[in-house]
Design a protein around this nucleic acid. Sequence first.
DNA 1: GGGTTAAGATGACCGCGGTCAATATAAAAG
DNA 2: CTTTTATATTGACCGCGGTCATCTTAACCC
Lengths: 195, 195
Amino acid sequence: MARAVQQRTLETRARLIAAAEAIVSEEGFEALRVEEVVQRAGTAKGTFFAHFRDKDSLMEMIVGARIDAYLDALEGAAAPKTVDGLVGALMPLCEFMTCERYVFDIVLRYSGAAAVEKIGPVATTFGRQIEIFQRWFAGAPFRRDVPPDLLAEGVQAFMFQAMAAHFCALHNAQSIRERLAPYLDAWLSPDRDRL
Amino acid sequence: MARAVQQRTLETRARLIAAAEAIVSEEGFEALRVEEVVQRAGTAKGTFFAHFRDKDSLMEMIVGARIDAYLDALEGAAAPKTVDGLVGALMPLCEFMTCERYVFDIVLRYSGAAAVEKIGPVATTFGRQIEIFQRWFAGAPFRRDVPPDLLAEGVQAFMFQAMAAHFCALHNAQSIRERLAPYLDAWLSPDRDRL
DNA sequence: GGGTTAAGATGACCGCGGTCAATATAAAAG
DNA sequence: CTTTTATATTGACCGCGGTCATCTTAACCC
């Protein structure tokens, strides 16, 4: 017979998350150490791993929550009508995802739901993103020869490409925005007369 | 006055690489432990790190070498004339890059030349890939409204998207090939009449 | 040869993520 | 209230990547 979750458990978990969140905002994601989290939370190390599968799992939660906040904003806004408008709308999200190499690594690893067994927070946000894009493209003045869900996935692919280039010695002269715009222009608005 | 590199050094390095290569082929990339490498090579642990910045750096070399072999094959072959032909040509490479989660992680991290300071072997192969694609697209029956280098970068973006989905619980029902084909079709051959 | 110097190799040591047998505590059963 | 049982917590311990002061060896000079 499964017993109800104890109040104590919820409190411990909340303390751990609060401690982690504090460290992230004070010192950044990269600097987070499990030892410091449990110290601030006043628990033993083992307790941490009773609540989270591993360190990255906690990081994924925090990163996922932040991405969700950006998606809330996107969902509230009107569907962009131009490629420039789209790029502008996506930039804040791109900037967060590239704010630290470590954050981008988390996103990369978990956007494709690293663990095949279970769909985590970050993978969920990417599912949400597809849905939002899909809705946008359903009624937008972009190409109509491919279905909206394919367009949406393509936008994601180019976002990653542009963000990856940001960390790249070969290409980091250009900004993410400068790279993303031509990609999305070519993807969403082929030039019929010059094909 | 800088002295010439000693023969001894080259031999040690060769032994380390040979040991690593042996472990990889016997047990896979994931299973490689630095301790085992140095044990097989008959050196001390510190020696390993005198030759390679870190473990991933060695892995990158090995992965980079394999990718280069695939690119040699691609370079030797004729430029694909259809999207299907292109997908077929790319599949062996995609399959290698997704043979292990760890390998894909290495590729992801280093394709964008993780270390901004220096361009590593894997990043170099991605530069090579762009050049090959570019050459292919310069004279191929694909869309002509965007320059070949942009087409090439797009193909890379979609390769990553298709490969990432392979590790994804949400999407792993489809094979990489099944995902890549519609992407590249939409990217390379927009339907003029239905835009 | 003997002396000097820079390159190379060494292994004890550290940091940090993650484990697990032992222990404590809350809730259900008697 | 006492016993039983599922759930939480603990911290010593481990694995493994990576460091560094120290020692060894090869090459150059006289």
